[in-house]
């Protein structure tokens, strides 16, 4: 019988083992209490261990009889740009204010697509900034200043 190795299964299992293990390690730093009077660490320790065990089972299964899933290409450009755009938003929205932050975030995000033309990107970013200002600030009365203190006024 030929073994079917499945890279996605092993990767997923690995992620689960890693995260489960990290939570287990973290839980040990908190008070565990007794089985019947649990401390803050007990529940995450238990669930973390279950997750790690399930992850291990998935790895083993992936090595023996894995699911055949095509992993496909990875859109590195999109990942990088979207991460940058969202982190930029979180980092600057208070300092720069709603309008500049939204505009830059929208512009960066449009660049995630490799097929976008520069002019389209600018037009989309401008349109989205206007639309989101109208919806969130004018319409829903969101309490974010339009222009932030970093801009000096």
């Amino acid at each position: 019988m030929e073994r079917r190795r499945s890279f996605p299964d092993v990767l997923a299992g690995g992620v689960f083992v890693l995260i489960g293990g990290a939570f287990v390690a973290g839980s040990l730093g908190y008070e565990l209490g007794t089985p019947l009077r649990m401390g803050p660490g007990a529940f995450p320790l238990l669930v973390g261990a279950i997750l790690a065990a399930l992850g291990l089972a998935i790895v083993v299964k992936g090595l023996v009889a894995g699911e055949m899933i095509s992993f496909g290409p990875i859109p590195w450009r999109a990942i990088g740009v979207i991460v940058l755009a969202v982190v930029f938003f979180g980092f600057t929205v208070r300092g720069l204010g709603f309008v500049p932050t939204s505009a830059v975030t929208a512009l960066l995000t449009t660049l995630a697509s490799s097929r976008v033309r520069p002019l389209t990107a600018v037009a989309v970013a401008a349109g989205l900034t206007v639309a989101s200002t109208l919806i969130f600030v004018v319409g829903l009365q969101l309490r974010i200043p339009l222009w932030g203190p970093w801009l000096g006024f």
Partner: peptide
């Protein structure tokens, strides 16, 4: 969306 946000603006002052 504009209509909706206008409605919001009217009630959401």
């Amino acid at each position: 969306i504009g209509v909706v946000s206008l409605a919001a603006a009217c009630s959401g002052n």
